[in-house]
Design a binder for these strands. Structure first.
Length: 275
DNA sequence: AGGGGTACCTGCGGGC
DNA sequence: TGCCCGCAGGTACCCC
């Protein structure tokens, strides 16, 4: 499940094969239609063919392909999306859409569950999802003053606040669990009751966990749903301290890790360390 | 306004 | 073996 570090890894891996290349053709399968906007493949093609990809950036988990006329393609991998760039057509049951380049190479967007998105945005136009985002979790503007101001009147629990993309962009379930463990905070603590002195720790641990995960090319869980572009697995799972460790001993205090449900998601924490 | 619930999908593992 | 159920979870959108 791609969160910020996995998204970052995909961008880094495809950049050398995609940057400054010109789009020659666009194809989408019938099942891939629900990913794209505009949904008419002919219209989509018309908007992007002949344009050059000048940059690929990221805000939270959104991926932005910048085209040379100021237009953009905004993509989101959601739970199961991934990118693979190949020399030849890539046969895969869940290969939903492809961009072929004049200079050679094919960009493939694989997505088993078809929750991912791939949207063309005209120059100067807004993207709804992007415009709702708070600062990127790795941006300098995400600091303890920002976070404490943002949360001081929120009654919702701290776990939900960290997962709220309009508060901070890029944190998903796995890393929210890990960040709270390292900041010694109970996931159920109301945001407005987080001690002021703890905010620098939350911010520091957020950046440390995410940067560490980037170094390890992301997290691959037992179900192996995440692979990088070369089919490699992320290696951060060996560093996970609470996520998916129900009943296993806490590495700090040996107490069994507890699993609870918040907002219909599995949340893991040490009831002793994170009191 | 803001919070809660649910839909969107597919694969997989567990229980019977 | 096979079927059914629940789980995985990011975001949009509905409703109250």
């Amino acid at each position: 499940m791609p969160e910020l570090p996995e998204v970052h890894t995909f961008i880094t891996q495809i950049k050398p094969f995609v940057l400054s290349k010109t789009i020659k053709s666009f194809t989408v399968t019938k099942e891939g239609l629900r990913l794209i906007a505009p949904i008419d493949p002919k219209l989509f093609s018309k908007e992007i063919i002949g344009k050059q990809i000048t940059d690929i950036t990221r805000h939270g988990k959104f991926i932005i392909f910048h085209l040379n006329d100021g237009s953009r393609i905004v993509a989101h991998l959601r739970m199961s999306g991934r990118f693979i760039v190949t020399d030849e057509p890539f046969e895969h049951k869940h290969n939903r859409l492809q961009l072929e380049f004049e200079e050679g190479g094919i960009f493939n967007f694989i997505d088993i569950r078809r929750f991912a998105t791939f949207e063309y945005i005209n120059p100067g136009d807004n993207h709804k999802g992007l415009s709702r985002l708070g600062p990127d979790a790795l941006a300098d503007s995400f600091d303890s003053k920002y976070l404490s101001d943002k949360l001081k009147n929120r009654k919702k629990n701290i776990y939900s606040s960290l997962m709220d993309q309009s508060v901070v962009a890029g944190i998903g379930n796995i890393y929210a669990n890990e960040i709270l463990h390292r900041a010694l905070l109970s996931p159920t603590l109301p945001s407005d009751q987080v001690p002021l002195i703890t905010f620098p720790l939350i911010v520091d641990q957020t950046k440390e966990v995410l940067n560490m995960a980037i170094t390890h090319k992301g997290t691959t869980l037992i179900d192996k749903s995440y692979k990088d572009m070369h089919g490699g697995y992320g290696e951060f799972n060996v560093k996970l301290k609470v996520y998916a460790r129900e009943d296993e001993p806490c590495f700090s205090c040996n107490a069994p890790i507890k699993k609870i449900r918040i907002q219909n998601r599995s949340v893991y924490y040490c009831p002793n360390c994170q009191a």
